[in-house]
Amino acid sequence: MDATEVIVVGSGVIGLTTAVVLAEAGRRVRVWTRAPAERTTSAVAGALWWPYRIEPEARAGEWSLQSLSVYAELASRDAASGVRMVEGVHAGTRLDGLGPWAARVPGLRTATPEECAGPGLWARLPLLDMPVHLGWLRRRLAAAGGVVEERGIARLDEALAAAPVVVNCSGLGARTLVPDEQVHPVRGQLVVVANPGLTTWFTAADATSDATTYFFPHGERLLLGGTAEDGDWSTEPDPAVADAIVKRCAAVRPEIAGARILEHRVGLRPARPAVRLEREQTGGDGVLVHNYGHGGGGVTVAWGCAQEAARLAGAAS
């Protein structure tokens, strides 16, 4: 068995980013995935950088800021990454309601009355086109010598038998692979419409409801959301929910009401009371690192978590 080999289980944004960091640190990386990246939850994410529904807050804040730095650099130098810096408003959010990480986000400020009717924050943040970004991650991984293999497993022991180091980035799959009953889905439904000309994003989340309101511009497409339905496993779009999403977004920007619907999407966020990012003693010679349970913040913390997972795996300083 090659002592430099690492198997990463899972090919969502957490798995692929972790694999890239490991491969670029000189490890021989194989990604084992039950489904290709374009069929993961990450592929349907709205993908605005923002620590959302993710704990523990202090660690998540640090991981988020590390990722923010990477995304800002990618946006400035690599259009093929699918990352852009885009302006927008978080309605109903105040600076004093956020953790210490917020003070370190460049340009984050209270929105003016012209920018937001009521309390809110203005920011220029990374917005990712996830199908594009996942493809870019796979190409970057391949350039570093890593490979992706479509291979489903029933237990992590199967990966530990094939490589000395395994990093578990299985997301919702960790519920059965670990097994970890604390992992559960938070269902998110989106509607993709033809963009009527919007260039800024908008979010408004109600902590007391499973309905959220947001729209994210991606060129000729506009992603509308959304929902946060705890414990719901359904991946079928609900027409009534879709209609409500469009109406909520159109109440903010009326031109959305007549936009042509292009697609319906549903993703199951892999939630947990807190992210599990730690090295587990396996009882054998193998090294097992867990990196899962990121809820709605996987894109936001991907690079920070990947760097920490690589250190735990002994592959980065």
Score class of each variant (00 low, 15 high):
2 D>G: 01
9 V>Q: 06
11 S>R: 09
12 G>Y: 13
18 T>I: 10
18 T>C: 04
20 V>R: 15
20 V>L: 15
22 L>F: 08
25 A>V: 10
27 R>Q: 10
27 R>M: 10
29 V>I: 10
31 V>E: 09
31 V>S: 06
31 V>T: 10
32 W>G: 00
33 T>W: 07
33 T>I: 08
36 P>C: 01
38 E>R: 14
40 T>D: 06
41 T>Y: 02
42 S>K: 09
46 G>E: 08
47 A>N: 04
47 A>C: 01
48 L>C: 07
48 L>R: 12
50 W>Y: 13
51 P>G: 02
55 E>M: 05
55 E>Q: 14
61 G>W: 12
63 W>L: 13
64 S>L: 02
65 L>Q: 03
66 Q>D: 14
70 V>Q: 04
70 V>D: 01
71 Y>E: 00
73 E>D: 15
73 E>V: 02
74 L>F: 08
84 R>W: 04
85 M>E: 02
88 G>I: 08
91 A>M: 07
91 A>V: 09
96 D>K: 09
98 L>Q: 12
99 G>P: 09
99 G>I: 11
100 P>R: 08
100 P>Q: 05
101 W>D: 03
104 R>S: 09
110 T>S: 12
113 P>T: 10
113 P>W: 12
121 L>T: 11
123 A>E: 07
124 R>C: 01
131 P>F: 04
134 L>R: 05
137 L>P: 07
138 R>D: 00
139 R>P: 02
145 G>M: 07
146 G>I: 10
148 V>W: 12
152 G>D: 09
153 I>D: 06
156 L>Q: 12
159 A>Y: 12
159 A>C: 05
160 L>H: 11
162 A>M: 05
165 V>S: 05
174 A>P: 08
174 A>S: 15
180 D>W: 11
190 L>E: 06
193 V>W: 12
194 A>N: 10
201 W>A: 00
205 A>Q: 14
206 D>E: 14
215 F>H: 15
219 G>C: 02
221 R>G: 01
228 A>W: 13
232 D>E: 12
243 D>H: 11
244 A>R: 15
247 K>M: 10
248 R>H: 03
253 R>Y: 08
254 P>H: 08
258 G>T: 08
261 I>N: 00
267 G>P: 11
272 R>Y: 07
280 E>A: 12
280 E>G: 01
282 T>A: 02
286 G>D: 08
287 V>T: 15
291 N>G: 00
291 N>T: 01
294 H>M: 00
297 G>I: 06
298 G>L: 03
300 T>H: 07
304 G>V: 07
304 G>T: 06
307 Q>C: 06
308 E>P: 05
308 E>A: 05
311 R>S: 00
312 L>N: 09
313 A>Y: 13
314 G>N: 06
315 A>T: 11
